[in-house]
Simulated scan of single mutants.
Amino acid sequence: MEPEDFLEPEVAVTAAVVAAVFSPRIRKVIRRGLVYGTAGVLIAGDAVTSFAKNIGEGAKQATTSVAQATQEGVQQAKEADKETASEEPVGTASTTRKNQKASRSNAGEQEQGEKKK
């Protein structure tokens, strides 16, 4: 083989693979690299999983607090409606009837007062 043949990519890759297979030192380095690489991938996967789980829990807590606030608001609105319903507004039928009765009794008292004179 000529020195120019070693510059071709196919030959260079083949020479590197043969050196790795037959050299105990290179095999040890490759094995260690695979172990550390695998460990790094597992740690990164755990970090991503933990991050996603925390985001899910945060979203769940947020929706729970929004639901509670909504329920409290609805409850307060119902209580406010009950309070305003117990107070009769001016101009309702029962208030009008009360006013008519009062005006009749006042008119009757005035007539009786005029007859006495």
Rank of each mutant, 00 (worst) to 15 (best):
Q61H: 06
I55Q: 14
G37K: 07
G56I: 02
V13A: 05
K98L: 14
S105Y: 06
R104I: 12
L34R: 08
V13W: 01
G108E: 15
F51N: 11
K60D: 12
V18Q: 07
D81R: 08
Q112G: 01
A93T: 15
V29Q: 15
Q75R: 13
E57N: 04
S105T: 13
P24K: 06
E87T: 09
P3S: 03
A44H: 06
Q61A: 12
S105M: 10
E79Q: 13
V29A: 13
V29Y: 01
T49E: 09
T96K: 10
S65R: 03
A85G: 01
D46T: 09
Q68G: 01
E57T: 13
A80T: 11
P3Q: 03
S105H: 09
G37S: 07
S103Q: 11
K98N: 11
A39D: 14
D81N: 04
Q110I: 13
T38Y: 04
L34T: 12
R97K: 15
K101R: 10
V29P: 01
A16S: 10
P24V: 12
S94H: 08
G91P: 05
A93H: 11
G91D: 06
A19D: 13
A47T: 06
Y36R: 11
G73L: 08
A62G: 03
K60W: 03
K53S: 13
G108K: 15
I43G: 00
K98W: 02
I55E: 12
T95D: 12
P3C: 01
E4R: 03
E114L: 10
S94M: 06
P3Y: 00
D81I: 04
R104P: 00
G73D: 10
P3I: 10
A44N: 12
G33K: 11
T96S: 00
F22C: 06
R104V: 10
Q112Y: 14
K115W: 03
Q76M: 11
E10D: 01
E2K: 06
I43Q: 04
G58A: 07
L42Q: 12
P24M: 08
R104D: 09
F22R: 14
E87N: 03
